[in-house]
C-alpha cells in the first residue's frame, strides 16, 4: 500500500477515512472513490499502487483494485467489482476505470441494473493514465464530474 487514505494520518485500511480531503471537518461526503477493473489482478493492483504513489503528498482518495476472476484467473468478476465499489464509497460518488472487453461490459451491466452504489460511474479514460489522473483529482477533493473529466482528458495527451 502506498500513500494514506484520505481522512488523515491514522486512517488505515478500507474502512478508514470518511472525512473528505476537501472537507477535513467531515461535515460532508468524503472524497470520490476510485475502482480499477482489469482482466488481471496484478495489473489492477499495480495500477492502483502507481496511481496512489503519484498522488501521494497528502491524503490519498480511496482506491480499490478489482482485477481478474474470483478464482485468480484472467477475466472479470462482478462480485470483486461490487466489493471494491462498496469499499471505496464515501458518499461522494465512485469513478470506475476499466481496461477492456468484459471489464467494460460487466461494469455497464451492473450499472444498468443499479447494482452498484448510487453515484457510481463508468469513466471513459485510458486505464493507466486515467487512473492516475482520477486518483490525483479525487485526492485533491474534486467532484465526481471533475474526476471523470480529469481522467478523460488523458485521451488528449498525444505521445507522438
Amino acid at each position: 500500500m502506498t500513500g494514506r487514505e484520505a481522512g488523515g494520518p491514522g486512517a488505515r485500511g478500507s474502512e478508514a477515512g470518511g472525512s473528505a480531503a476537501a472537507d477535513p471537518a467531515g461535515a460532508g461526503p468524503g472524497p470520490v472513490g476510485i475502482v480499477l477493473v482489469s482482466h488481471s489482478a496484478a495489473v489492477a493492483a499495480s495500477v492502483a499502487d502507481l496511481a496512489r504513489g503519484l498522488a501521494a503528498g497528502g491524503p490519498v482518495a480511496p482506491v480499490a483494485a478489482a482485477g481478474g476472476t474470483a478464482d485468480g484467473g484472467l477475466g472479470t468478476s462482478a462480485e470483486l467489482i461490487l466489493a471494491a465499489a462498496r469499499e471505496v464509497d464515501r458518499g461522494a460518488g465512485i469513478a470506475l476505470l476499466v481496461d477492456l472487453g468484459s471489464a467494460v461490459l460487466t461494469v455497464k451491466a451492473l450499472l444498468e441494473d443499479d447494482e452498484l452504489p448510487p453515484g457510481a460511474r463508468l469513466v471513459d479514460a485510458p486505464f493507466v493514465e486515467g487512473a492516475t489522473a482520477a486518483v490525483v483529482a479525487a485526492s485533491a477533493g474534486a467532484s465526481l464530474e471533475a474526476v471523470a473529466s480529469a481522467a478523460g482528458e488523458a485521451y488528449s495527451y498525444r505521445k507522438n
Binding site: G75, E79, G101, L105, T106, A109
Partner: peptide
C-alpha cells in the same frame, strides 16, 4: 441472467446476462 453475470468471467457473461435479464 444475474447468475451468468456473476459466474462467467468473460464478455459472454454480461452479454448473455443482459439478454436474459
Amino acid at each position: 441472467g444475474r447468475t451468468l453475470i456473476s459466474t462467467v468471467g468473460g464478455a459472454s457473461g454480461p452479454l448473455y446476462g443482459t439478454l436474459l435479464r
